[in-house]
């Protein structure tokens, strides 16, 4: 398959410096110029991480996340996949991964470059899950790292699990989203059990030029693009001690 099979939908383009990326409805970003697929915060084995501490959350999250990833990889056949850190929910995650899931992950890596950027959850991860581990990575003008670095330009990161609430004709709707201002792009968390954090919350303060902020909310089969003005609470971070939005999960 060729990149031409990539199904484009209205408003799915994201500009970062002078590069164009595509926001996919599965939650991954695609960089056509380098045929690179980028995912953030896969949080594999979050279910089993809870189970081992006494809360038997359904053990199907790794398989669900992998299935979604596999469908995307099959459709666009990237030459390179970059995971932006926190691929596992904790550092013992790779050991807990089932044979079946591990095989599937290995098959996805066949024939392409696979890069694991270290996150805070899985920094000391042990166990063989293929690929190459790096702290951060630069490709052309873009830098890939887990946590956003203040003052950096042209970086793509994860860690914060952005979500946004936007105004629609009757009320508001909240979804996980891509958040970018042309100089930085933060990807939504990809994992089936990974929650979202409001872009209007304190953690995002100072990361974007608010008037340039654009979010792409994840929808069914497409993403929905909104400027900062549509985001509930985006401009009102007060003195930085208060969250203007309530949502935590």
């Amino acid at each position: 398959m060729t990149p031409a099979t990539l199904l484009r939908t209205p408003g799915d383009a994201i500009r970062l410096l002078d590069e164009e990326l595509v926001a996919l409805s599965c939650g991954a970003a695609f960089w056509p110029a380098t045929r690179t697929l980028i995912v953030a915060d896969l949080h594999f084995e979050k279910g089993s991480s809870f189970a081992r501490r006494g809360a038997p959350i359904p053990p199907y999250d790794t398989a669900a996340t992998l299935a979604r990833l596999a469908a995307t990889i099959t459709a666009i056949d990237p030459v390179r996949v970059i995971s932006l850190g926190d691929a596992f929910h904790d550092s013992a995650g790779p050991e807990r991964m089932s044979e079946q899931d591990r095989d599937r992950l290995m098959r996805l890596q066949a024939g392409r470059e696979w890069i694991w950027i270290a996150g805070n959850h899985d920094a000391d991860a042990v166990g063989d899950v293929g690929g190459v581990r790096v702290e951060e990575l630069s490709v052309g003008p873009l830098t890939f790292r887990h946590e956003p670095k203040r003052g950096a330009r042209g970086e793509i990161c994860g860690h914060l699990h952005p979500a946004a609430r936007v105004r629609v004709s009757a009320g508001t709707v909240r979804r996980h989203c891509f958040a970018g201002d042309g100089a930085r792009l933060i990807l939504p968390a990809y994992g089936a059990y990974a929650g979202g954090l409001d872009v209007a919350s304190r953690a995002f303060a100072g990361l974007f030029e608010v008037h340039r902020l654009v979010v792409h909310l994840i929808g069914e089969g497409r993403v929905h693009r909104f400027p900062a003005g549509s985001i509930v609470g985006a401009r009102v971070n007060l003195d930085g001690t208060a969250r203007p939005r309530a949502t935590r999960s």
Binding site: P10, G11, V166, R167, V168, S169, A170, V173, R175, L217, G219, E220, R222, H224, R225, F226, P227, S230
Partner: peptide
């Protein structure tokens, strides 16, 4: 109706 309204709002802006 959520998805429908989301699409409508985004498309209007475009």
């Amino acid at each position: 109706a959520e998805e429908e309204m989301l699409r409508e709002a985004a498309d209007d802006l475009i």
